[in-house]
Amino acid sequence: MAPGHIPALLQETLEWMTPAPGEIFLDGTTGAGGHAAEIAARIGPRGLLVCADADPSMLEIAAPRLSAFSWVRLVRADFADLDVLREAAGGRTFDGALLDLGISSVQLDDPARGFSFRVEGPLDMRRDPDVGGPTAAEILRDTREKDLADLFFRFGEERFSRRIARAVVERRKRDPIRTTAGLAELVSSAIPRRAWPRDIHPATRVFQALRIAVNRELSSLGVFLDAIPGHLSPGGRVAVISFHSLEDRMVKTAFRRPASGPGDGEPMLERLTRKPVVPSEREARENPRARSAKLRVARRRDGGDGT
């Protein structure tokens, strides 16, 4: 990315979020710090930006980029841990909160993390390698065939989920699937060659499904969406960039949810984007990883009590 150049979707995110001098912001998915640096520059030294990431390696990468902003606080935490993040803000509510749910290029390109079929590596896929819970290899080893098929279909929207699950179970009888290359080869062979997708690798959806399952991403997103209105100041904005239809559906529903319960009262959040904002054709062409991105933004209505 050229100096001074801001990707179009990031520029639109900033325009919808309108970070202003002195405001308190949360970047719940700091990554390499691209969004955070732009927000920090806009809120200035009278503001405060809490930058969270569950992956300690990403915070290490972001730290030098954000070191010029003394008003940035780096926190190793999942974005669903809003009480912890609120504490990092001194207990104050946020004027803006941002989630970018896409996986970082740094994570994808590191063979040791096991996120990508493009490079040989162990099937780990944990964002935080220090947390408990199964790796992708352990899920493939221990999950029943029917549950594997459901996982691939639900989280990956893979229409050949049953064939792939059956192939996994047959393979693991002889030899556990431990590497990214081994899984990618197995998935490719399980899908009829004529049915391979044109624009993505045949294993893309299975890798996506496993990553979501390993990191319990939908569960974390649900907790965040339920709780974030109470952590926003009146008029505070929340923006979510999603890359999966299930994620986008959750965000869309949450931004319409009544404050009390189904059918009771008005939504606590006011939608600012009636339809999701998507990358331009040029941006999608220049950055294929961004082509499925969808941005939705909402604002907390005035009044009501925060947590």
Rank of each mutant, 00 (worst) to 15 (best):
M1K: 03
M1W: 12
P3C: 13
H5S: 13
E15R: 12
W16V: 05
T18K: 14
P19Y: 05
P21S: 10
P21R: 11
E23T: 14
F25H: 09
D27S: 06
D27W: 03
T30W: 11
G31W: 01
G33H: 07
G44K: 07
G44M: 08
G47D: 13
C51D: 03
C51A: 15
A52N: 09
D55W: 11
P56H: 06
P56C: 08
S57R: 14
M58C: 05
I61Y: 03
R65E: 05
L66I: 04
L66G: 07
S70E: 15
W71T: 03
L74F: 02
D78L: 00
D78G: 06
F79P: 01
A80H: 01
D81S: 03
D81N: 00
L85H: 13
T93M: 06
T93A: 11
D95T: 03
L98S: 00
L99R: 06
L99G: 06
L101S: 02
G102K: 01
I103F: 07
Q107Y: 01
Q107I: 00
D110R: 14
D110I: 04
P111R: 01
P111L: 06
R113H: 02
G114V: 03
R118T: 12
R118Y: 08
V119M: 08
P122V: 08
D124P: 04
M125D: 00
M125Y: 04
R126H: 12
R127I: 02
D130V: 05
V131D: 14
V131L: 15
G132S: 04
G132F: 05
G133Q: 09
T135I: 05
A136P: 02
A136Y: 05
A137K: 05
I139M: 15
L140G: 05
R141C: 10
T143D: 07
D147W: 13
L148R: 08
A149W: 09
R154H: 14
F155A: 08
E157W: 09
R159M: 10
V168G: 13
V168W: 06
E170K: 15
R171I: 14
R171S: 15
K173H: 14
R174D: 15
I177C: 11
I177P: 04
A181W: 11
G182C: 10
A184V: 08
S188T: 15
S188A: 15
A190R: 03
I191C: 13
P192D: 11
W196Q: 09
W196C: 08
H201M: 13
R211A: 14
E217K: 02
S220R: 15
S220F: 02
L221S: 07
A227K: 12
I228C: 05
I228P: 00
P229C: 06
G230D: 13
G236A: 08
V238N: 01
V238Q: 02
I241F: 05
F243C: 10
H244S: 02
K252M: 07
R256P: 03
R257C: 06
G261I: 04
G261P: 05
P262H: 07
P262S: 10
G263K: 02
D264L: 12
G265T: 07
G265E: 01
L269W: 06
P276T: 04
P276N: 04
R282H: 08
E283C: 09
E286R: 03
N287D: 12
N287Y: 09
R289H: 03
S292W: 01
A293R: 00
A293Y: 00
K294F: 07
V297T: 02
R299Q: 07
R301Q: 01
D302H: 04
G303H: 11
G303A: 10
G304D: 11
D305T: 13
D305L: 11
T307A: 12
